[in-house]
Write a protein that binds this DNA or RNA. Structure first.
Length: 492
RNA sequence: GUCGCCAUCGUCUAGUCUGGUUCAGGACACCGGCCUUUCACGUCGGCAACAGGGGUUCAAAUCCCCUUGGCGACGCCA
């Protein structure tokens, strides 16, 4: 039988990390078995659903490289069908109209609480004769439709791929509402009806749905359908051990933030896939193909994972392992794969020049390959990389002050050193290095003094890639020019 | 409160099913050495955990029970 999974987010917020991981696991599961991945937007709560949220979800999935075979379906388009199915249950005596008012219910709930019981159903309406129920409805008395949980059964049971056997006592399940007073369907109904209609074979979703699953299985049975397989994923928690959410923990919970922060999609994909699941091979760098080969839904662990970040610390804005993985991808990706991302970032920051893919193609590649070994974010191509693509870069004050300790030496020698560089014929790294070291030796000055000064003069930064790489990338003329300008401005 | 789930280094995790090979392995982070007279690269090394208590057993991180802790669900939200 063909595997069919679905990712069914509700468009009430942006695509968050938990949702993204659910999508990843669904996608991995479907793709490794030649199954279909269906995207369904669960917008049954019209009040809270927004167009922006839908766009964010779609864009987020595309960005992650998660493609879908069907959809996006919008659940609200099928309200009539859901309602029809609910009424079928009503006709068959598997559901009933509950005419209880809010007050009535509240009182009942309070009373039950005194006896330490919780609400399960309202016999008065549950046992109402269908004809009488029809009459009341016709007379305009408002009602909801509740599912009539089969009380003759003892338990509902299913085997979860991850949690194993889950048994729930029938007596603990209330007659839940499936149709609102205004006739719109509720989550449990819509979800089951659509999963049946769409022939979903495997439901992979967050662990917070475990409780719903028992109810949903009852619905499957009422509809005479075979329930799908279920796999409930452990939750992603924040440091305070509560469920990671945008409301509580801010942007770090939202996928959009990672896009803006310069993540490579596959790096985030990799990180998320390893959160709650392990290939058990001691490897961390796992591109999609490898993940596809090794992923096993049944080996996902049961305990929740904590997302370790510190919002107060810039460098730890998200889990450090995620940042580290991103750095891995930036430096290990084949050039062809990293290139489009770099181009995009440079364009966004007005640093892109057409010649980078024409006459300066080779130069550009060398620059990027040198640069990327040190970067943690794509955005750094435009910040730390700026001096290579523009002569307008800022000078780090701390770094400047540091080298100005040797102001006199530099004033006497730096421009002369620049002239020496200029005499280089090939301007290759070894040659540049030799020039500098010979020069320093001749002058009896530590090479380090020049190295530090050159870094500041040429890039304005106190750290970065090797200085000889920097000089080669910046080029003969520009190096000379920058040193001269720097001397005039700071050394005299 | 009720019901359910979970419990190995600070964090992600391997090992738990099939008890001995583990005074518990890897990764991130952290600390130190080397390299670099730059570096958020690289490299080598270090720190660091079986929640607690009872069993069962020749032997328990691994099996059983209890306690504790954490999380989730208890909506005419999804």
């Amino acid at each position: 039988m063909e595997i069919r999974v679905r990712f069914a987010p509700s468009p009430t917020g942006y695509l968050h990390m938990g949702g993204a991981r659910t999508a990843i696991f669904n996608w991995l599961y479907a793709r490794q078995r030649g199954g279909k991945f269906i995207l369904r937007i669960e917008d049954t709560d019209k009040e809270r659903s927004t167009k922006e949220a839908i766009d964010a979800i779609l864009n987020g999935l595309r960005w992650l490289g998660i493609d879908w075979d069907e959809g996006p379906y919008f659940q609200s388009d099928y309200f009539n069908i859901h309602r029809e199915w609910a009424y079928n249950l009503l006709r068959e005596g598997k559901a009933y109209r509950c005419f209880a008012t809010e007050e009535e219910l509240e009182n009942l709930r309070k009373e039950l609480q005194k006896e330490k019981k919780s609400f399960k159903f309202y016999p008065k309406y549950r046992d109402l004769d269908l004809k009488e129920s029809n009459d009341m409805a016709e007379n305009g008395k408002p009602f909801v439709i509740r599912f009539k949980v089969p009380r003759e059964k003892e338990i509902v049971r299913y085997v979860d791929f991850i949690y194993g056997e889950i048994v729930k006592k029938i007596e603990e399940i209330e007659d839940f509402v499936i149709l609102r007073q205004d006739g719109t369907p509720l989550y449990n109904l819509s979800c089951v009806v659509d999963d049946i209609r769409m022939n979903i074979t495997d439901v992979i979703r967050g662990q917070d749905h475990i409780n719903n699953t028992s109810k949903q299985i009852l619905l499957y049975e009422a509809f005479g359908a075979k329930p799908p397989n279920f796999a409930h994923l452990p939750l992603i928690l924040a440091k305070d051990k509560s469920k990671l959410s945008k409301r509580k923990h801010g942007e770090v919970a939202s996928l959009t933030y990672y896009i803006n922060k310069g993540f490579i999609p596959e790096a985030l994909f990799n990180f998320l896939a390893l959160l709650g699941w392990s290939p058990k091979t001691n490897e961390e760098y796992m591109p999609k193909e490898k993940l596809l080969k090794l992923f096993d839904i049944k080996k996902v662990n049961k305990s929740n994972a904590i997302f370790n970040f510190d919002e107060k610390n810039q460098k730890e804005w998200t889990d450090k392992k995620a940042i580290w993985l991103n750095a891995q991808y930036i430096s290990k990706y084949p050039y062809e794969k990293i290139y489009p991302y770099v181009k995009e970032v440079l364009i966004k920051n007005n640093l892109w020049k057409e010649e980078y893919e024409k006459e300066k193609k080779e130069w550009f590649r060398f620059a990027i390959d040198s640069l990327r070994t040190r970067l943690h974010s794509l955005n750094e191509f435009a910040t730390l990389g700026k001096p290579f693509f523009s002569s307008e870069y800022e000078i780090n004050e701390e770094a400047l002050n540091h080298i100005l300790q040797n102001k006199e030496i530099l004033n006497e020698n730096l421009v002369e050193l620049a002239e020496e560089f200029f005499k280089n014929e090939n301007f290759e790294i070894e040659e540049i290095e030799k020039t500098l070291r010979d020069f320093a030796e001749r002058k009896n000055i530590k090479a380090g003094i020049f190295i530090g000064a050159l870094r500041v003069a040429l890039t304005g930064q106190k750290e970065g890639i090797g200085i000889f790489h920097i000089i080669k990338i910046i080029g003969k003329e520009e190096t000379k020019k920058r040193i001269e300008e720097f001397s005039k401005r700071y050394l005299i």
